[in-house]
Design a protein around this nucleic acid. Sequence first.
DNA 1: CCTACCGATCGGTAGG
DNA 2: CCTACCGATCGGTAGG
Lengths: 208, 208
Amino acid sequence: MSPRKSAAEARSTRRRIIDRGIAIASVEGLEGLTIGRLATDLGMSKAGILGHFGTKETLQLAVLEGASAVFVHSVWHPAEDAPPGLPRLRALCEAWIGYLEHERAVFPGGCLFTTASVEFDARGGRVRDAVARLSRVWRRRLAAEVRQAVAAGDLPAGTDPEQVTYELVGCYLALNQELQLLADPEAPARTRRALDRLLAPDAPVHPR
Amino acid sequence: MSPRKSAAEARSTRRRIIDRGIAIASVEGLEGLTIGRLATDLGMSKAGILGHFGTKETLQLAVLEGASAVFVHSVWHPAEDAPPGLPRLRALCEAWIGYLEHERAVFPGGCLFTTASVEFDARGGRVRDAVARLSRVWRRRLAAEVRQAVAAGDLPAGTDPEQVTYELVGCYLALNQELQLLADPEAPARTRRALDRLLAPDAPVHPR
DNA sequence: CCTACCGATCGGTAGG
DNA sequence: CCTACCGATCGGTAGG
């Protein structure tokens, strides 16, 4: 029999499950993430996995939360020290490119939020709600940075922050697709050119 | 026992399977499309479904081909009579918005190509290859239209057609996400504003 | 954290 | 096009 572990050991096991779950879900999706696959990969029993989460849905939410922490660490943190306004917005965007281009060890199948967004966008439930919420939080953060850049005079007055955010999100969805599906090495350069146009001091205002 | 059907009846059944398969796969993905679900929905046996395709992979490829026909009908055809160059490109883009916004009866879960792209981008196999091929065909078509618009003087000389195509694709990936995941009614208007900027006679050239 | 098990469903086949 | 079936796997539970 295997004895009950200490709280610290349990936390460490939980972390291992989540890290592995992120990698699997990045490739197979959050529905394609199965408890049996996790158990095999980690050399555990299915009941051992499930004991940490109770249900698959709770596991999916924990994996999503873990991926969110990775995103914050890879994209938000590196830009935190940049001056507010356009410099910080550009630092954020550059870190975002690196996240999609280089975080293959964590996300072998590409950005988990993109995968989960498409996977759950036509369903109900707590996972879908969590994906939508994370998406809105990130968009709000981007729009706030754009607003600061406008206030600082780094972007033209009259710029629509939601419009710029929408176009930024599109750029990165396209980048993810070109990297993952088409394996196009030109993709990051194209993203940077789009950013140069979108985040330029003389960018045309979007008329409403 | 149920007698063998005529070739015409078999074709009609095959069509029904594919149409239903497109609707299911749009919501559940091409992997989430199961033979049992199709059988229940259509009042057939699983063997009856499988008899038309042999394997699930062949069914997935047939569903993808059917969705491609819908896309061609909804987006390519309406623009075919527009004059080459910018007018046709804009007609294509407008039909593309309508396709994402209104084809809910055919694709209740949103664009099947977006779903399949993310679902298979980290796998191998014939389905992934087919998705990537369709994606490249559409990008080439868009780039060719941009090139014609430049040749006609409707877009600035020096415009990079692949760059514009990349940004167009991004716009529509973002539109699909805002419609499906975020249910944002402003999304089509935002897409049109992005197009106005991207496909304007005085759009800034993308430096390489 | 394990073993041992549950009913449901998966893709697919045999045979008609 | 059907019934009847196959082994594998799904999420989850009982009990320790």
